[in-house]
């Protein structure tokens, strides 16, 4: 009977349950960060724990949406979904100084164009090197390397097989996960400590979830700058990859 009531609680108030669960994950992460004397690593540790939980949940449930596939934690899909994520990202723009944006305008635009083409062609070259010699397959995998949304958009437009589309999504997810984990480690070396480089970083990496997670774990003051450019990346990729990108790939294959 008690177990039944508890199940009811989790299925009736999924969002509240997810907020409580995230609070526990963060409390543990900050406690652990303090323990190892790295106070600023708290959010990075919380993100890594969440990713690890998503891995365990994915293995046990066989689903594709991490912890939210576990009935008790379905609220994670709402709390971590794109609606609340974007709502919160927009709010971080409050306090941004106009002059900082102007300063980063040109490098922001340049980084977007270079970022999309760099990721696309790295993906294409690796796909060809590993035997995906057909232009449609290579372009789809390259597009997935841009972000895991651009991959399926391009694959659908070009008529790629579902196996290749799945691979392209996987490439994008790898990018997003690697970004979340590596950013706080590499931040100092790439001078990621001011609004201009944060905007360039957002434009070069572009995966909104990766950039958001990586910058939050590095220095939350930089989030609005990186997020602002990153939000144009997927759109630009969806535009360029199936059109100009595919045409260039086709010239060589």
């Amino acid at each position: 009977m008690i177990g039944e009531i508890i199940t009811t609680l989790f299925s009736k108030f999924p969002l509240v349950g997810a907020i409580g669960a995230v609070a526990i994950i963060m409390a543990f992460s900050y406690w652990f960060a303090n323990l190892i004397g790295q106070k600023r690593m708290g959010s990075a540790i919380a993100i890594v724990i969440s990713l690890a939980l998503a891995f365990i949940a994915g293995k046990t449930t066989g689903g594709s949406k991490g912890i939210s596939d576990v009935t008790y934690f379905s609220g994670f899909a709402l709390l971590g979904g794109s609606m609340l994520r974007d709502y919160a990202i927009v709010s971080t723009a409050f306090g941004v100084k106009l002059e900082n944006l102007k300063k980063a305008g040109l490098p922001g635009v340049v980084s977007l164009l270079i970022g999309v083409s760099f990721s696309f062609f790295v993906g294409v070259i690796i796909a060809v090197a590993l035997g995906y010699n057909n232009a449609i397959d290579a372009a789809t995998i390259g597009a997935g390397t841009v972000t895991f949304i651009v991959g399926p958009v391009t694959g659908t437009a070009l008529g790629a097989s579902s196996e290749v589309v799945a691979l392209s999504i996987a490439a994008g997810v790898v990018k997003s996960v690697v970004t979340m984990i590596i950013t706080p480690i590499i931040a100092k070396a790439i001078k990621l400590d001011n609004p201009t480089t944060a905007m360039v970083y957002g434009g070069l990496i572009g995966t909104t979830s990766g950039v958001a997670g990586g910058l939050a774990a590095t220095d939350s003051k930089l989030v609005p700058y990186g997020a602002m450019t990153a939000t144009f990346y997927t759109g630009l990729g969806s535009l360029l990859c199936p059109s100009i990108g595919y045409m260039i790939v086709k010239m060589f294959l």
Partner: peptide, 11 residues
């Protein structure tokens, strides 16, 4: 929210 988002990735 970002922590929750990390939890719903297809890792």
């Amino acid at each position: 929210i970002v922590v929750a988002m990390a939890g719903i990735q297809n890792v």
